[in-house]
Amino acid sequence: MSKTGIFYFFIFSALISITSLKAQDTLILDQDDLEEVSKGVNYKFQEKEVEKDNNDQKKNINIDPGTGSWFNNAGPVFKVALIIIGIGIILSLLIWLVSNSGKSNVKNDRAVTILSDEEITEKTMTLDFDQLIKQAEDEGNYAYSLRLLYQWVIRILAENEYIIWKKDKTNHQFLNEIKDQEIKSDFRKITLIFEKYWYGEYPIDVNKYIHEKGKFNNLLKELNERQPG
């Protein structure tokens, strides 16, 4: 149910409550009229029965704590005001719950989308790796984050002309293309790390991830600072 629907539902409930109270007032007036009409009528009751009835009424008064309560004795306007306040509190609570539920759904919609190896390879030159890696880290998917970091390194290698990128090349083919021995050595190290956690499926926690990620970041930094050799 939408927020507008909930609002109209409770307004309708309030109108029903007000109508009910008016009906009760009408009933009370009818009873008063009945008592006025019956004043001249003489009813015959035995004295013992009258005393018994009085005693029963006293017992009922003592036993029933609700009789004569402040709410029952309150005027109809005051009752209506209390009902409207109560409805307002309930309505506010429901709107708050609906709003928070909506926020929760938005958060779930923003959960990281896991791309396949084929998708990552085909979109290597266009993916927003920085954003995808951040999302993977927020989800605690550290192996997937290393997968993205590795492909990011391949893109930078291609942009800096250390390799010629083609989607059907293997990682070892890229490694053999690198002429700069220092870059080649660092790329070999992160290749082993990537294959260990991604294909080997070794367990990785946040501490291991931070340690391994540093090696990827160092190579990315070095590639951005150096000229192709």
Score class of each variant (00 low, 15 high):
Y199R: 06
R226N: 14
I210L: 11
A158R: 00
V50N: 11
Y142C: 10
N217I: 12
G86C: 14
F9G: 09
I156Q: 04
I87A: 11
S92F: 15
L29V: 15
L15Y: 13
I84E: 09
S69Q: 07
I90V: 15
W70Y: 14
Y197Q: 03
N60L: 08
A81V: 01
N62S: 12
E47P: 03
K208Q: 14
S101T: 11
T121D: 01
K3D: 06
K196V: 06
I178F: 05
D180Q: 02
Y202C: 06
F187W: 02
R226C: 07
Y142G: 08
Y142Q: 06
D130R: 13
K169C: 06
L132G: 00
D168N: 13
I133M: 07
E51K: 10
S185N: 15
N171W: 02
Q46E: 14
L82D: 06
E195F: 04
A81P: 01
K196F: 13
S69V: 01
N108G: 00
E201G: 10
K134W: 04
I114H: 02
A23M: 13
G88V: 02
E119Q: 09
N217S: 13
T124N: 13
Q46T: 12
F45G: 09
K196Q: 14
Y150W: 05
K3H: 07
K213R: 07
N54H: 14
Y8L: 14
E161K: 15
V41F: 13
Y142E: 11
D33H: 09
I83K: 07
N62F: 06
D168K: 07
I210K: 06
D186H: 11
R110L: 09
